[in-house]
Design a protein around this nucleic acid. Structure first.
Lengths: 123, 123
DNA sequence: TCCGTTCCATAGAATCTCTAGGGGAGAAGA
DNA sequence: TCTTCTCCCCTAGAGATTCTATGGAACGGA
């Protein structure tokens, strides 16, 4: 299957819109229960029918960032495939953050949608 | 009226989610007709009930970027308040870009919404 | 004359995601 | 056994965007 390649100057793929939303997506994923990074990426990709494809180079720094901020905690363990894996668990503060960011995203995305779907200048 | 201030490490305001969407918002605004920068900012703020507040330090670089890419053209003129103003007009290519980015945003935002509103793990 | 508003612009900081690497270790097939 | 694939982790540096902070010009009203 072919993926959309972006030429930065002429195209925009969903990937470019990810800015600022990765954290809330990861927090939401982890709200289902502890999970290792690789599983988080797969889960997001699957739930969104391949629309969201998180690169490992984005995901792991994001997880470390969330941990630094106290929104997740990690622990080494063994995966379902018998491999060494670091499991992340969302904290209470992380759940508060998730709620806050979720509602922020809703407000924001509705505002953008409103702009993009307006068909008559309402000024 | 009080504005949300962001401490970067603990809060997220709609502003932080703007990444990647400013261009399409500006293009959409200009699709209503030629407008100067200041008016673009006011229009977006008004239509979204103050949810989207575009800083001038973001707006003008964005307009210049769009012009470099051939999506808008500019021309000096005089504003409705009798002031010197640079009017921007969307180009044919800009309208193509607008359509493309609009649909991309729709796909992306629906994917994010799907993740954030899922209440049962569908794996 | 003074001040508020309108309008434009840029430099530098801060952030984020991606690209492009590197690596270890289990599993499965040749 | 050897090779290859998949799983799983990580980081440095590049690239892009938005914000903060500033500065400036000019109109109009008090």
């Amino acid at each position: 299957m072919e993926r959309i390649t972006t030429t930065r100057t002429s195209m925009t793929s969903p990937v470019d819109l990810l800015q600022g939303t990765l954290d809330v997506l990861v927090l939401k994923t982890l709200s289902w229960g502890p999970m290792h990074g690789y599983a988080v990426a797969r889960w997001l990709q699957q739930v969104t029918d391949d629309v969201l494809q998180i690169e490992e180079g984005s995901l792991y720094p994001a997880l470390h960032r969330l941990e630094r901020r106290g929104w997740v905690e990690s622990e080494w363990g063994v995966s379902e495939n018998n491999r060494r894996a670091k499991y992340y668990r969302i904290t209470a503060e992380g759940r508060r953050q998730l709620r806050a960011e979720s509602s922020t995203w809703t407000i924001f995305s509705q505002a953008v949608s409103k702009v993009l779907t307006t068909t008559t200048a309402s000024v």
